[in-house]
């Protein structure tokens, strides 16, 4: 099912944190593995059709213009194509892996001009080898549990999580924009992260 390239992608907004079909989340991993194994372009275009618009949405929510967000989405998927061999389904789900690519591009892309060249030169990218001997759930099961936990949050709590997820302005700027004290921004961010920590610790 290769989507036509001649039309915009007609994808409806998904239900928020609706449980995803098991085969859908595992199939994203399989698609990446097919790209890795034999540069399967059909598999790749399916990944592009699903993740392209979402990564673009992620970039726009983070402050990128429509055109630039699309460029960053392309670069994210281009990275998926080129680095597919380094994907390890036993260590990360497809969406976690693609999120880290998008996140790193967002860091580079949205703040490039602000970077001190010196620090950039010294930021070396190494492999994150997380060992979790006590972990009994695989990455897909963890993602499903996480999704279920997030769906149980109140709208206020979800807002908190979103604030911490998309906001890459320095805290004083958020405080100014929302007209609330700096300490309030910090304590709200902290609350949302603590909430997430509880959820994550329950996954073990």
């Amino acid at each position: 099912m290769l989507c036509s390239a001649h039309q915009a992608w007609p994808i409806a907004a998904p239900q928020r944190y609706a449980p995803m079909a098991d085969n859908e989340t595992t199939s994203h991993s399989r698609l990446i593995e097919r790209v890795a194994a034999n540069q399967d372009r059909h598999a790749f275009m399916l990944l592009f059709a699903f993740f392209g618009p979402r990564v673009k949405g992620f970039m726009m929510r983070s402050g990128a213009s429509d055109a630039y967000a699309e460029e960053l989405a392309q670069e994210t998927l281009l990275t998926v194509w080129r680095k597919a061999q380094t994907f390890d389904a036993s260590r990360a789900s497809a969406s976690t892996w693609i999120f880290t690519i998008a996140r790193n591009l967002r860091i580079d892309g949205l703040r490039r001009e602000k970077l001190a060249a010196n620090a950039q030169a010294q930021l070396d990218v190494l492999d994150l080898d997380v060992e979790r001997p006590d972990q009994t759930l695989n990455s897909v099961e963890r993602a499903e549990r996480l999704r279920a936990a997030l769906s149980g949050l109140s709208p206020d709590q979800l807002d908190l999580v979103r604030l911490s997820f998309f906001e890459d302005k320095p805290h004083p700027e958020i405080a100014k924009a929302l007209n609330i004290p700096l300490g309030t921004v910090k304590s709200r961010l902290r609350r949302s992260m603590m909430l997430l920590r509880e959820i994550l610790e329950d996954l073990k």
Binding site: R54, S93, I98, A143, L146, R147
Partner: peptide, 11 residues
């Protein structure tokens, strides 16, 4: 990062 992946999927 896993949370990020889930949020991305549902975005």
């Amino acid at each position: 990062e896993e949370t990020g992946g889930v949020v991305l999927e549902d975005l």
